[in-house]
Amino acid sequence: MVVTRDTIVRYATYAVVAIAIIAPLLSENLFLLNLVSLMLIFIIFSSAWNLLACSGQGSLGHAAFFGIGAYASTLIAVKAGLSPYITIFLGAAVAAGIGILLGLTCVRLKEWFLAMVTFGFAIIVQTLTVSVLAPVSGGWDGIASPRLVSPAIPGYQLIEYYSILVISIAAILFIRYVMKSRAGLAFSAIRENELEARAAGVDPVKYRLLAFALSAFIAGVAGALQIHHIGYITPEIFGVDLSFWPITYVILGGLGTIAGPVIGTVVLTIIWDGLRLAGLTFSRYIIIGVILILTIIFLPKGLVDLPNQLPKWKEALHKMRGKTKTAGSPE
């Protein structure tokens, strides 16, 4: 049997999923469990951002949908008394609805304009939350949010972790399905050349809106999950930081791929929390920024492209060495 890269990737995926399922049963480390839960949530979030970027729309304000999903889910759960397991999806549906509205204003915009509008949108939503909506949202102080699994149940952390794991796997499989489908093809066609896509019979408006709705929905799920996991929500959730994280994760992992957001999130979370344990504060961001810029310049397709790039780098290094040797040796 020939071992192709695809089979390696497939078995590696199975292995990772198996580890994610078994590991928490073996060790009772709550710190790690919490860390991995948040990491899974961010995998969902960055995958959602990635889906939108696949259609050529780079959002700088995805925290808006993350936060809308979170607030909507919390408020529905509190007012209607529903289980967070249901409200997560209701909240996400609200985020998707607002995503379509924002998408309608964005369909005709080019990259920079779209980036500006999405960035501004997050600020508008934050302003609304702390001003007009303050009576329900609690203003800057925020409100308590019901936990996904009530802390009264023994081992609730573990149940919560498995729920998040299942939802994140479902989200990734769903995104994979979308990206392999006709819609996914249409997204890439629009991203590469909108005019040609239109000539080939792809309706850019329809597919751009679809991308907005799906991406906002999944981001909303991620936001709701995070808030029900933490148990508290404040308007900080709409902040620039949360809008930029998914971008950083996806660029490092590989834009437009399914594995990219996952790899990027895992690698950066490890680096980030490793640096925190090492006692760095501001310098952590500097390191992340340097990593981001180096990735864009030297590894434009992200870490998933590393297996293809490494031989090239080796060759280049070899050539450089050869040159310096001939230049340096007089004989």
Binding site: G58, F244, R284, Y285, L292, I296
Partner: peptide, 19 residues
Amino acid sequence: GKLNEIFLSIGLIYIIQNG
């Protein structure tokens, strides 16, 4: 590509602000 400039700016923002 234009998206790259936007992403690169984000890296710069991280570096300069925290520097």
